[in-house]
Amino acid sequence: MQGLEVRGLSKHFGGLVVSENIDFDLPAGARKALIGPNGAGKSTFANLITGILRPSAGTIRFDGQDIGSLKEAQRVQMGIAKTFQITTLFPQLTVRENLRLPILERQGLGRRLFMRADSNRSVEAEVSALVDQFALGSLADRPVLDLAYGQQRLVEMALSLALKPKVLILDEPAAGVPSSETHLIIDAIERLPDDLAVLVIEHDMDLVFRIARSIVVLVQGRILTEGTPQEIATNAKVRELYLGGSHG
């Protein structure tokens, strides 16, 4: 199968079970969302897929290949990228320099000593394309720390996309973004390449229902249910979880 295929994935921290027997598919072109209350194990699940954490049991296959034992950097090179929940950029570098870094590395130029970092045409073309795609043109030569938070989240996404991933995991892409800027994030996600498999981990239900074609609900490390936005919206257990949870 093209894309991600997760079977029986479990993760224990000592006696604490944070992921329990998760089966999950993310084929090419998918737009899935992972939702669930705080502490449901959403970020743990993302970290298991990207290789930051090692699973206690289960398999993770990518394009048919078992990647469970590969390191984070190796999985990135295979095409699995993730944005950070807390913006993790290079604050003193300009937007262009931020984007240039992953592209240079992907093209294997990252250790070159005797060329200027901004002199490679194909790299610069990619940088400019990303700048345009995320509408960062007027800010491209400013240090990232000068940007508004919503704009930094866009750079965060652009940086992950610069790796030309096949699977992109967006870990709370709108967290901390003022609601007046949320549309920037949604627009950017809607413009992602069609063949890219996208998994969004998010609290903002508005965003989830706008983007996702399929929603997975995670509760206490287990998958409660999976379905289309309509199915999830009308699911009694999910309603109880969200409405009951917020009032109790």
Binding site: L89, R111, R112, L113, S160
Partner: peptide, 20 residues
Amino acid sequence: SPFGLSLRGVHESPERMEAI
């Protein structure tokens, strides 16, 4: 050079460099 830029990257955010 690209190497010099990557050193600045390592300086500013080693986590991100690993993620790259």
